[in-house]
Amino acid sequence: MQSATNAIEGFMILLGEIVSAFLHKIDQYEVRLKDLLWQVKENNDTKLLNKIAENRHEILVWKNFLIPFIEVKTGVVEAFGEKYTENVHFKRTNYRFERCQNLVRAYEEEIRGLIDFEDVVSSFRGNEIMKTLTVMTVLFTPVMALGALWGMNFDSMPELRWKYGYAGALILILISTLLVYWFLKAKGWTGDMLKSKKKQKYVD
């Protein structure tokens, strides 16, 4: 402040120190964001989605903090003319401000990328769950159909008196289930849901 030759320079020095404090806070935010980027790979769950939302809110707060600086910077030029833009203190403060803007813009893009990534993973999980439930329902359709048939109380059901009726029913259920599975497998509708899975990332 003692190096300032007028009030405008002193004000820009003060403003530059405030922006410098913002930069320090943004550097701390950068560390947390990097940790979050790697957590997405290691542990992708609802808690992590909440962290992403918190970081997105924080970056919006940073953008809101920068708006008054835009007004002040343009206001100085508007009120006192462009001759003050050549001052070293104005330039230093302006460089710091532009650095803040660039960092906030870059981090906002990273947050947007994380949200898009979460959307892709959530959609993939939802599709896999629905596909799995559908395949399992189709596989057990013969069991449910035959169980409903033999659960009826008709007077004339000769298979109930067969000596090997129970074994025959089990064999019929097994064969019909295997036929349904073979049909689904031949069509390629089972995907990788029935394959053994090793430890994976992102979509565990």
Rank of each mutant, 00 (worst) to 15 (best):
H24R: 10
R105M: 09
Y95S: 12
L37Y: 08
E82D: 09
R92E: 11
E78T: 12
G151S: 03
K34W: 04
K73I: 09
K34L: 11
A21T: 09
V40S: 06
K131L: 14
L172H: 03
T46H: 12
V135Y: 00
I173T: 13
G10C: 00
K83E: 15
L48I: 07
L36R: 04
L49M: 09
L33K: 04
R99Q: 10
M136F: 05
V138I: 15
V120K: 12
L114R: 11
A21K: 11
I115S: 13
L23S: 08
A106Y: 06
I171H: 00
T134E: 04
E110G: 04
I129V: 14
L36I: 05
K199S: 11
N43P: 00
E98Q: 09
F22T: 04
A148Q: 06
K34M: 12
L36G: 03
D204L: 13
I52D: 02
Y107A: 03
I8S: 00
F140I: 05
N87V: 07
N44H: 09
V76T: 02
N50K: 10
E42R: 12
R99M: 03
P142M: 04
G126Y: 02
T134H: 04
T132H: 07
E98F: 03
I175R: 02
I171V: 13
I129P: 00
N43R: 14
D35C: 07
A169D: 06
M130Y: 14
V40P: 01
R92T: 12
H57C: 02
V143A: 15
M152A: 08
I67T: 08
L184N: 00
E98I: 03
F69V: 07
L60S: 13
W162C: 01
W182S: 14
D192A: 09
F140S: 07
E9F: 02
K83C: 06
R105P: 00
Q28R: 08
K199M: 14
V121I: 15
K197E: 12
I70A: 10
D204F: 15
I67V: 13
K199T: 15
A4P: 05
A148H: 04
R125Q: 07
I59D: 00
V121G: 03
L184A: 01
G188W: 00
V143I: 15
A148I: 06
N87R: 08
F124Q: 08
V180M: 10
L133K: 07
H24N: 10
E108S: 15
I173Y: 05
L178K: 07
W38G: 07
E108D: 13
V120L: 14
D192H: 07
G188E: 01
K201N: 14
A21F: 08
Q2V: 09
G188D: 01
L149V: 07
P68M: 05
I59S: 00
S20I: 01
D27C: 01
L103R: 09
M193R: 09
W38N: 09
I13C: 00
Y29D: 14
Y95G: 02
E159Y: 11
F183T: 13
N6A: 03
D27V: 04
L184K: 01
E118M: 12
W62A: 06
R125H: 08
